[in-house]
Simulated assay, not measured.
Amino acid sequence: MKDKPSFLLVTGCRRSGTTFLGNLVGTLSNSSYVEEPFNKLRGLKTIPDVWYPYLTDEIVNKELKRDLNRFFELKKIPFRHSINNNDTGYLDCNTTVGKVILDVFKNQSGEPLLKRILRVVLKNHHYLSYTKTRYKSNLNYAVIKDALIALSTPYIADNYNVKTVFIYRNPEAYFYSMVKQNWYIELTDFQKQNQLLKDYPFVKNLVEEEHTKDNRVINEWIIVNKFLLEIYKKHDVICISQEELAKKPIEQMEKLCAKLGINSNELDYDKIKKMTTASTVNPKNIKNVNRNSIETLKSWKGKLTEQQQHMIKQKTESILSELETIKL
């Protein structure tokens, strides 16, 4: 009988290095990488329709429980279909197979024909990454990279045999990266999760603030990182600094392996070097794996206004200080 693989979960706030760390962990021998199963646009069909869903025993219904059980058994489960819609400029998510097939002929998305045909069966790269993991032979490590699972990590830890690593980023660097990409989520995604507000009153206070764009951006960092700080005290999770990882990737990965009980000889050092010392980067690829990791630490310097810097420091200084005390 085939041994079950170890599940390694990499999470943290968006734009904080989860993809970078996930791919580094994915250099372990006989590992496979699963992309954002909790993504409400492309992930599991039964995941709640919010960014950063908060799961508890009371919230998880029978269908979601079934799919999560099957996920951690690497069995077949339904993922969402999605189509890039040229008319709206947005993604049509959780759409039907029929609409995807219709898009092959209408080409609302403007995608190449082959890519549209593949969407009928392969759905999206999130589903494909899970499918490849399911069928990988001699699988020792299933590496789940998902920032959006962050608020569900206590539930996952209590119900499944998963080792969790969360990565945090300097809040000013995070803020610049989000603003540069014009990314933010509506804080109502937190506000309408009543159990979350009840269990973590600080979230309720933050989402009731004025919803300026700057507030929406930095409050996402605060909610996710403060939440992860609180669960760190109750669950066996590992905290890693994006800045330290960028400066000393091999040293940090060896420390992480020691903490996870994994022999660091299982790391692919050549791949790690390639991922962290690349001389050229495609700025349009926001999920770029190969980069000069040291250079990424400078990209945000001098790009924020004094007002933004003051606001960020005032709101995040105490959280950042606490994160610094628990990092690898």
Rank of each mutant, 00 (worst) to 15 (best):
K248M: 09
I231N: 00
L260W: 11
E243Y: 09
H211A: 14
E209H: 06
I238L: 02
F227Y: 06
I231Y: 00
R216Q: 03
E210R: 04
I250D: 10
N265H: 14
E230S: 12
L260M: 11
P249K: 01
L256G: 08
T212M: 02
K234S: 15
T212R: 02
E210P: 05
K226Y: 03
Q242K: 14
K247C: 06
R216T: 05
Q242N: 12
G261E: 07
K233G: 02
Y232P: 01
K226D: 01
N219T: 04
E209Y: 10
N263M: 12
L256N: 03
E244G: 03
N265W: 09
A258E: 12
E244R: 02
C239Q: 14
N225G: 06
K233N: 10
A246P: 01
S241T: 02
N225E: 01
E251Y: 05
Q252A: 12
E243Q: 14
Q242W: 11
I250S: 06
L260A: 07
V237G: 04
V224D: 10
Y232T: 06
F227G: 00
E220S: 14
N265C: 02
E266A: 10
K233D: 14
I250L: 12
R216I: 00
L229H: 00
S241F: 00
E230R: 09
I218G: 10
S264F: 05
L229Q: 00
Q242A: 15
A258W: 07
K247T: 04
I250W: 06
K248Y: 13
E220T: 11
S264N: 07
N263D: 15
K233I: 08
E230F: 09
A258Y: 07
K233H: 07
E209L: 14
N225I: 04
M253C: 08
D236E: 13
K213E: 13
N219C: 05
E210K: 10
N215D: 04
M253D: 11
N215K: 01
V237Y: 09
S264L: 00
E210G: 03
E266D: 13
A246G: 00
V217Q: 03
I240D: 09
K248L: 10
K234T: 12
Q242T: 07
E244A: 14
T212L: 08
N225F: 04
M253H: 08
I222Q: 03
I223M: 01
N263T: 13
W221P: 03
R216P: 02
E251L: 11
E266V: 03
M253Y: 14
D236Y: 05
L229Y: 03
Q252K: 15
